[in-house]
Design a protein around this nucleic acid. Structure first.
Lengths: 137, 137
DNA sequence: ATACAAGTTCAAGTCAACTTGAGGTCAAGA
DNA sequence: TCTTGACCTCAAGTTGACTTGAACTTGTAT
């Protein structure tokens, strides 16, 4: 088991790169919990660092803080609703495919010889794919 | 060359699924252009549909409207700044890798037998990856 | 003992990307 | 001609995710 240290908000901020204001905001939103206070000052268990990594990852994957809250239960560690999780995995998979299409399309566009991108079949295929996506909410 | 029709805002809305208010907003932001008016009413060339597909794709790839505006020049078709484009492709590539990590991690979490996700090595690896990403702005 | 850096609260502000509402215009059909 | 429905403008409101500012408190170092 990793050894569990006590950190103040500044240390957490330094370790994660997140401003203290964000950490307070997350606590208010119940995404993280402080383990107590010394005087006024919040104290965090170093486990919060993993939790924050998870939150950041989720955000980068395009989930809202609310969704993330629901995905990784309000209690300590990520004990997750499986159905929700599977749904999210599917979302992600679709996103990844879209992004890959975009990446390939742009990569191609960067070297394409066609006079205008619109005349390039690769680019047109990209756009057709893009058009279909419409069903994502 | 695809044949170019004239569409009113309602037709564009129907074709793309975007509300008219959004289309007006995009025009104001110079992301699209109407080709004229009939009375008060905007008229669009059907080429705007491709442009909108491109915008939507860009958004799904996580770019802001401003970035998209810069990526695909203010004039008609996407005549793109190559350096910017290459940078964007790199961004995308990183995003895709992150999303893939998240997807795999979540997929695993959905079936994992470990008592808590934090005790699962696969999940821990995911978090380590997530931690490193910090450098994305 | 005192100063001070690092915390704290709470309300308000910001930004992107839209949406909504009020009130107005206009072309086409009955 | 008159009505209607689809469009228009412009200002203000909304949501999510924070940030900022003012005023206050405290543990640690001198």
């Amino acid at each position: 088991m990793t050894q569990s240290r006590v950190l103040d908000i500044g240390e957490v901020a330094k370790a994660t790169g997140l401003p203290a204001s964000t950490l307070r905001y997350y606590e208010e939103k119940d995404l993280i919990r402080s383990i107590g206070r010394r005087g006024l000052k919040r104290l965090f268990d170093s486990a919060v660092l993993e939790r924050l990594a998870l939150i950041t990852l989720g955000q980068q994957a395009g989930f809202s803080l609310d969704e993330i809250g629901r995905m990784f239960s309000p209690d300590g560690r990520p004990q997750i609703d499986r159905a929700l999780l599977v749904a999210k995995v599917d979302d992600l998979d679709r996103s990844i495919r879209q992004l890959s299409a975009m990446r390939d399309g742009l990569r191609h566009a960067a070297v394409c010889k066609a006079p205008s991108h619109m005349e390039c079949p690769t680019f047109q295929r990209l756009l057709r794919v893009a058009g279909k996506i419409r069903a994502r909410a």
